[in-house]
Structures are given as structure tokens and as C-alpha cells.
Design a protein around this nucleic acid. Structure first.
Lengths: 293, 293
DNA sequence: CTCATTATCTGACTAAAGTCAGGTAATGAC
DNA sequence: GTCATTACCTGACTTTAGTCAGATAATGAG
């Protein structure tokens, strides 16, 4: 890392976050304590579960309770019991609350606009694309991979999403019981491995590795959340699974894929996989790949 | 402004400033109130005048006084009377204070580094240049121009810098009494105009417009602070002076410049000025320009 | 010397933010 | 049914941040 990069980043951290952060707060807290304003804005037009809000804003439950009470007293929100869990509560914005939220939303737009004013159109475009780039790269950097049990709740959620997505994309739908099923024990060490990618605590992708033969491992259940696509998450999961396979002494990795998954095929080709002949009877698979480690 | 630009900026504001801002605060306030930590960091290894600190951090004098007292009690700073002005005070970090400052500085570097880790080298480069671009464009956008008296303290400071810089750059030095002197009344409405560019309250550039003849105005005293160069400040000052000249009914603008000021010549050429014959006896001028409005 | 101004300090506040211990009621595993 | 856990509430705090109205002493202009 060069010293000048570090100082560039520090200057960015210092000036940009400070400048925008202060503006943001002042736009948001128009006569209302910042804490309340933030909470109200976070609730959103669609309402929210109190539990989620507490997690998202990292607030103490007592403090949260008091903030909600205050907003309720001001007639901005209404609290109802959760239908599924009578302990939990749901917050919804009232009419007044919605108006208030709108004014915050407008202020946010105004702030975004004010950053552009004072720049000529070309510079505006450059600013927007540089901001997009920073945002994209920082999100990319904040994705973290970990090996864990395919039975963990995040892993199960990912696998569930995986199945749903394939069902939507394959021509004749997808029945996980029909294809080459993979049991969770097959993906649990020491038989196999399962990797979950997370961003800020929420799962955004997964992939499994199982033993196929003495020298070959197989990649299964590769999935990336739509929100995290285009950021190299799948590529990193793949690389991690290959590293594991190498460590486990396998000399090659196999995988199969459906003809409708074009991005996947492109990824495999880019990562050094070569297409080979069909090596199993999976009815959903049309392309077969291999990579020598 | 397109709606997608706005939403890109909002996403940037939301995620980037939040992500970095929170990290920054948590790195900085290791067990110490954020306000104290910020103040300590702002004092810096070289010490500072209390007055300057109050301005930079925009703190109430009472609050500031208390913060300083607290840091002093903790043995982190020492306060001395200013030698020139016995009312004012100077703060210096003690040994402990310096150690503390160092740990903040290290934390800042660590934060910068942590943003890069998890990205491959190419992506790191892209992130750094995108950040630099955002920082540069946002500072550009925050430069504001205003017409004011050439006798205002900021204006006088700019003119002072202008003279100092020319004295350093001209081959045989520069004596403002020798060249074509310009009195401040000549640059004061309605005879003429003076523009000051400011960024976050500090002057970063200036330029004057005076009457030369019934149809021609002349640009004088164009200067941009080294810290603000390369951001189009001079171009904006020039454009503003031209607008004023146009409003005042002049049909052309004149200016002269020294051969050592290459950037200035480039700027004038780019802004539509054409070189003309010598029109005055200014011993420091080698190039003469004109623009028809 | 007078007098407005400047730089700082002090005391007396307030509001906002956050913490902590304990309490109630619902839930889910066994 | 028992019992640990979860979701939330309440009351009693503390800390942090910030404001405001004077007081004090030095400075500088006239």
C-alpha cells in the first residue's frame, strides 16, 4: 500500500464524510431530535418490525421503546402486535408520519441536488460515476466469506433462495428432489464444505464443495443474491472452494450447470474451467466443466 | 438532473458516509468522549491557537473552555499565554497527549487500510482514484464567489498573497508600486468590481474588473490559492467578471500578463481570449489579450 | 485616558443520547 | 407442564453536548 493512497483515503474520509454527514443530519433533523428523525425515516412508508429496527440502528431496547413512545405521542406512528408473535410489535406510519417521512425524503433529494449544483453538467456526470464507483467498491470490500454448516440458518436461507431462483429460471421449473440432490452431510466437513458470503451481517451468497472421487471434488449450490451481483461475490466463493479443494488434496474440480444460466457459464470459463463431456445424469444440467488445480 | 443520478448520490450518501463515519468515530473515540477526541486530534503535534480551534470546530467558547480544562486535567495538553496577545491562549500536546494523538493517527491509517483490504490491487487503485475524484469535485462545488469590497479583510489577504506570489515568480521580482497600480476605489462599485472566491469560509481566490475606456473593461489581480488550483476557480472568477462587464455595457475585456505565468496564458486562450498588441506600458506585462463579449 | 472590542472563563442551565437493572408476557423446546 | 429465551416496557440513572448570560482582563483606536 502506498503512503499516498492512504493519505488520499484519509482526506476522503475526513472531508467527504464530514461534509455530507453534517449536511445530512441538518437536513434530517428539522426541529426534531436526530434520533427520532432517523428512526422515523428508517421505519419507512412500508412500516417495519420493531425488532428489525433495533438491529438496523443498533439501539438499546429501552431507548428504542422511549423513542417509539415519543413518536406515538406525536401522532406520527401507530404500533400493533405482530400477528405471528404476540411479543413482537410492528410500527406503521400514520398519515402525519407519512407526510413527515415525505419531507425527509424530499430533503434527501434536495441534499443530493445541492451537491451537484455549482458543477457544470460534465463534472456532475463525473461526480455521480465516481460516487457510484466508490459505493460499489466499498460494498464489494465489505463482503466476507466463511466456511460453515449448510444447516446454519443463513445457509438454509441461501439454499432456499437458490432453489426458488432456479425454479423461476429453468424452462420446466426446478424440483430439488428430482435432480442430483446433495445432502447437507455431504457438504459438512470432513466430507465436504459450505461457504456463505455475508455483507453487513446478511447472507448474500453461498456455494458448496463435495467429494466426487478420490481426485475430484464437485462444486454445487453456487448462488449470489441479486442485490450483490456484479461485485465478484461468486468469483470469490468459487476461488475459496477451489482453495479448500486444493488443501484437501483434490487435483481437479468438476461442476455442471443449466443452459439458462449464462452468467454462470461465463464465470466458469473466465475462471479457467473447460467444458467437458456429461459426467452425470442430472436432468437439469446441460454443460459440464472441469478445472485442474 | 436525472432521477437515477439522484438515487445514485443518495445511495452514496447513505452507505458510504454512514459506513465510514461510524467507523471513524469508533476508531477515534477509544474510551474518550468524541468531542474531546476530536479536539485533541485537531490540536495536532504542532499545537494550535485556541481561537483557531474554535473557528475550525465551530465550538461555543464556554464549551471549548471546558473541553480544554478536561484535557488539561488528564495531562494531555498544556495551555500557555500567547506571546503577542496576552488574552489569547496556545495549546500544546504534552508527552501523553502526543502519544494519544499518535494512536488516533494510527487508527486513521488503519481505517484507511481496512477499506482497501478485501479488494484486489486493481480494484484498490480504482477505489483510491474514485475517492480522489469525489473529493476533488465536491470541493470544487463548494467554492463560492461573491462580489465585495477590495478593502474587506479577505480581499486584502488575497491581494497580499497575489503580490507575494508574483514577487516570487517574476524574474526580477515584483514591486506593486512600479507596475500599473490599481487603487481599491477603481475596483469598488460603481467604478469597478472585485470578486472573492471562498471555500468553507476561507478565501481561495480573487479577481478585479476596472474601467479602461467607454467600451473596454480590464481584468486585474487574478489569483488562485495554490491549495485550490486545478479546480476551475480562476475560470469561474473570470466568467463572473465577464458577466459583470457585459451587464455594465462593456463590449470587450482586456488583460495583460507576465511571460512566466504559463497557466494564466493557457486559461485565457481556452476562455476565448486572443492575443493583441501591447496596450499599456506595464513593465511586468509581456502578453496582452482581448475578448469580445 | 476612555471605550469598544476581543479572547477566554465561569456558573447555571437544558436537551439529547445512552445505559442498566429489573419486570411482564409470549414463545418454543423438551 | 416446566423452563430458558425472546421481545418489549419501565424507572432510575449517567454522560455528552451544547447554550446563555455575565465576568475578567488585555488590546487597540481615538
Amino acid at each position: 500500500m502506498t503512503a499516498s493512497s492512504i493519505s488520499d483515503i484519509r482526506r476522503f474520509n475526513r472531508t467527504v464524510t464530514q461534509r455530507i454527514g453534517v449536511l445530512q443530519d441538518s437536513y434530517l433533523s428539522r426541529g426534531r431530535p436526530l434520533g427520532e428523525a432517523r428512526l422515523l425515516f428508517e421505519i419507512g412508508l412500508g412500516g417495519a418490525d420493531v425488532r428489525d429496527l433495533r438491529n438496523r440502528l443498533a439501539l438499546d431496547s429501552g431507548y428504542m421503546s422511549r423513542l417509539l413512545r415519543s413518536l406515538e405521542k406525536q401522532g406520527l406512528i401507530s404500533l400493533t402486535k405482530d400477528v405471528d408473535d404476540a411479543r413482537a410489535r410492528r410500527v406503521e406510519l400514520t398519515g402525519d408520519g407519512r407526510r413527515e417521512w415525505q419531507s425527509y425524503d424530499d430533503a434527501s433529494n434536495e441534499l443530493a441536488n445541492s451537491l451537484l449544483s455549482g458543477l457544470d453538467p460534465k463534472a456532475q456526470d463525473r461526480l455521480v460515476s465516481a460516487m457510484t464507483e466508490v459505493e460499489r467498491l466499498l460494498s464489494t470490500a465489505s463482503v466476507q466469506l466463511s466456511v460453515e454448516s449448510p444447516d446454519s440458518s443463513d445457509a438454509r436461507w441461501c439454499l432456499d433462495q437458490y432453489v426458488k431462483e432456479l425454479a423461476g429460471r429453468f424452462d420446466g421449473g426446478f424440483d430439488p428432489a428430482n435432480g442430483n440432490t446433495v445432502s447437507s452431510t455431504e457438504m459438512t466437513p470432513p466430507s465436504g464444505y459450505f461457504v456463505v458470503a455475508r455483507q453487513d451481517g446478511t447472507a448474500v451468497g453461498c456455494g458448496g464443495l463435495i467429494r466426487r472421487s478420490a481426485d475430484a471434488a464437485e462444486i454445487k449450490r453456487m448462488w449470489t443474491s441479486p442485490s450483490a451481483r456484479g461485485r465478484g461475490v461468486a468469483r470469490r466463493i468459487l476461488a475459496m472452494l477451489e482453495d479448500i479443494a486444493r488443501d484437501e488434496g483434490f487435483s481437479r474440480v468438476l461442476l455442471d450447470t443449466n443452459r439458462s444460466l449464462n452468467e454462470a457459464r461465463t464465470l466458469y470459463a473466465r475462471c479457467g474451467y473447460v467444458e467437458i463431456a456429461r459426467y452425470n445424469q442430472n436432468p437439469y444440467a446441460h454443460h459440464f466443466f472441469e478445472k485442474t488445480l
